[in-house]
Simulated scan of single mutants.
Amino acid sequence: MSTERPGVLDGALHPAENNRLFGHTEAEHFLAQGYRSGKGHHAILIEGPEGIGKATLAFRFANHILSHPEPELAPAELADPDPSSIVSRQITAGASHNLLHLTRPVDEKTRRVKGAITVDEVRRAGKFFSQTSGTGNWRIVIIDPADDLNRNAANAILKILEEPPKRSLFLVLTHAPGKLLPTIRSRCLPLKLKPLPDEALRMALGHLGFEDSTNDAVISAAGGSVSEALKLINYGGLDIKAAFENIVTGEGTGRRSEMHKLADVLSGKDSETIYDFFVEIAGNHVIGAARQAALCGDIIRAERLARLSSSLTEKLTIAEAYNLDRKQSILSLLEELKVATA
């Protein structure tokens, strides 16, 4: 991951710095028209899979509003932010007094991104509104993503959403809206984004300088997500996927050696990104097997695999919480998957 921006993948741009967006023209039009009408909602829930441009869209819309603070005078469409403008420079530097980006904080000791957005982070929003309440400007909070709010933080956000300050806007991002508190969802206007079409994904990767790496294998495996494509290109994701599939579907004693090789890679130094990538692959594999069993009418097997999915997630969460040996956790997971999905 980027050392300058913790949590940003190698080869990616932080959404605040990215002045281009691909594949979401309709969503941009919807936001621009809603704002210009003067009847826009105070909280917008931007939904969609990870890595398709939700945060980039949020920063892009925030730039539009802060550049055109009077709705009736705003352009009818969003434009690429002007890097030379004061608003853009402040947003890019994280120095805008009218925009607050709430995301998982960095642990000062380990320099790693923490596992959740805490209530202390949400309290920054209260301070943000109190400090800017007399300026008359728009005040925009981007929650990125709201999926990472812990219970106390979610309840604190809900209180603000219930009584929003004047000229305030919440852009609430989510990869999995079903995991959010229903009361948060009910107070937001939903805006659903779809995975990027292949051509838009190629253009987004080209914008990042990856024209030569956007082969069909990457585009097919990325599922319309720029972040997934970057993991495949820069983090050995294609090799990890191939090794995983070979292990859980193959036979023979040699598979044990392959399991150890994969576990060594995933438990090595600075392996957080590829480990999370692997966990996602494993989870999707079990869910896919459960779905296939259900379609074939094997309800007992489908239920067993569904329980396995929950069990694996719980075991991995406990292993991380108690700092258990990651390699052994991975080996145990692979063993369970081989038996359950054979």
Score class of each variant (00 low, 15 high):
F61K: 00
P81H: 14
P71L: 12
E70L: 08
P75K: 02
E108L: 13
N63H: 15
A79C: 02
I91L: 14
L100V: 09
H101L: 11
G38A: 06
Y35R: 07
A32G: 06
L57S: 02
L78V: 02
A74E: 07
L31N: 07
A93R: 14
E77Y: 14
F30G: 00
S96K: 13
S96L: 13
F30L: 06
F30H: 12
L31I: 11
L78S: 03
K39V: 07
I46V: 15
H42E: 11
E70K: 15
E28T: 12
T92A: 15
L66D: 00
G94S: 02
G94F: 07
L100W: 01
F61M: 05
A95N: 15
P71S: 10
H101G: 02
L78K: 00
K109R: 13
P49T: 03
R36F: 02
I44C: 10
P75H: 11
R60E: 11
I46S: 01
T103A: 08
H101N: 08
Q33M: 09
K39G: 11
P83W: 01
T56V: 15
R60S: 03
A93N: 06
A62T: 02
Y35N: 01
P69N: 03
A58T: 04
S85K: 05
D80A: 15
H42F: 09
A55V: 03
P69L: 10
T103F: 06
S96T: 13
D107L: 00
S88G: 03
P69R: 10
D107C: 02
G48R: 09
E72G: 02
I86P: 00
H41D: 11
E28I: 07
L99C: 07
P81I: 12
A74W: 13
Y35L: 04
I86S: 09
P75W: 06
G48T: 05
H97D: 13
H41S: 14
A27C: 08
Q90Y: 11
P81E: 12
R36A: 11
S88Q: 10
E72Q: 14
E108P: 12
I91Y: 10
G34C: 12
L31Q: 05
D107F: 02
E28H: 07
L66M: 15
A43M: 08
E28M: 14
H41K: 04
E108Q: 12
R36G: 03
A93W: 12
A32Y: 11
E72V: 00
H97P: 10
A74I: 05
G40A: 14
I65Y: 02
E50P: 05
H42Q: 14
A95R: 15
I44N: 05
G94K: 03
L100H: 10
I52C: 01
L45T: 09
E108W: 04
A95E: 15
R104P: 03
A93K: 01
R36L: 06
S85G: 04
P105N: 05
S96M: 13
A74L: 04
L102E: 09
R104Q: 06
R60N: 07
E28K: 12
P83F: 08
L31W: 13
F61D: 03
R36D: 12
T92P: 08
R89N: 04
